[in-house]
Design a binder for these strands. Sequence first.
DNA 1: AGCCTTTGACCAGCG
DNA 2: TCGCTGGTCAAAGGC
Length: 485
Amino acid sequence: MAGSRDHGSLMEDWMPPTTPSPRTLMSSFLNEDFGSGPFGNLFSDNERNRPQDQLERSKQLVGLSKEVPAQFARPPFQKDVSLEPNLFNPTQRSSSHGGLAERMAARVGFSVPKIDTSRAGSSTAIRSPVAIPPGLSPTTLLESPVFLYNAMAQPSPTTGKLPFLMASNATSTKPPAAKMNEDCTFGNDTFSFQPHSGLRSFLTAEKDHNACHQSQSLSNIHQQESSLQSSFTAVKDTTDERTVKTNTSDSMFGDNHSSSDEQEDDETNQNGEYSSATVSSSAEDGYTWRKHGQKQVKNSEHPRSYYKCTHPNCNVKKKVERSQDGQITGIIYKGTHNHSMPPSNHQSGIPFSHTNAPEVNVLESRGSQAGLNSASLWENAEKDCNRGVQSEGIETRTAVCLPIPTNCDASIMESQDAVDVSTLSNEEDDRATHGMVSIDCDRDGDETDSKRRLKSPPLNYLTQARVHDIVFIDESGPFSGSWML
DNA sequence: AGCCTTTGACCAGCG
DNA sequence: TCGCTGGTCAAAGGC
């Protein structure tokens, strides 16, 4: 058992007790960032009105993140704090590396407009934040590095689909877990995850999916705004344990729900009310979990639940933090499943676009799978969480954290790569866009890449100017989310 | 009857 | 060594 200290630190990272709070950071970065940069002129109002002190604050935050050696230095969840500035700090982005958006613009020949997040959530008329340069077709945009096409991606602020970062390399078995309903959550101001593989509730999901789709088109614009408010999730992948931290919009943006939240709780409406389909517990991911404890953790406003895999001889555990309204605010997986997924839940190969069922525990399910398949990815996580992690652990900030299939020698992209796209060199960008999740899977080794891509979107991520979250996709689909604006 | 959740107590690690 | 904190155990209750 990891020392309490480790966990304590972990939690602190999740919810930094000290200022600035995630909400503060986020709003700070939103205010500053989206008004500046290559497309700042689109929202010049913000630019002009931006207080200088915000800029300074942002710089300070960046400095925080710099204190730690680049890739591993950040504590598991403290990333939430330090990462944002680093990622989004306009100054750093534009000055040091020219900014991803700028680089992308150079490559593609056009610039990717930024969404005016300052208006997100407002009731003002919405205009498309994405300006397509003359001569470029939507198709070109979608297929361009800036807007990587992802057939499985859900609507996004930029592409019309939410650009989930896909870690398709992943290979191996796809965790059946899928986040359903996330589509429906668009109305909730968040992007949705698509289920990787079928869930037992596939049929239901399908039905929900259809319903959701109808509203998606109408709410597309709204999504654009809301997506900006998505929360971050930190994925920590140490050797054996994975930590998924999702800052619920709750904590970050008030009413907005993070993707993870929605995933988890099948659906809470915008008011935070639960729909009839509520949290189905942890079985949705295809594995069965038994809750064996719950505790209120210090420095966390949310209770932490402890789950164990019910499979005999399986020691996989997970810790889930939920907000008062049931939204998941953090998930930590520990251990590796030594068994296959229960047949009833096994529906691999189902496009997650079809698995939008109100599966609640997307995070969990993915995590569980990760735990299942990926052998002991996080066993030492707890140990590393606070000390080792910084130097050795791999951290990933994602809206949703999904464990990587076990058979894969998955090394989730380093947090730095995954997150701080803006500071990546071109080469790094490529890495970020194609190899954020480095998964070396043997399981499906006989499967061709093309085949894999059919099953899941290419590992395209970090293709836009801003990364809000990263979606990792293994063979079966995205298992983590993030998006850029 | 079996499984799961809840909940208080116990244990272990750290300062 | 003690107190704090987090993680786990296990009894009780519910479904």
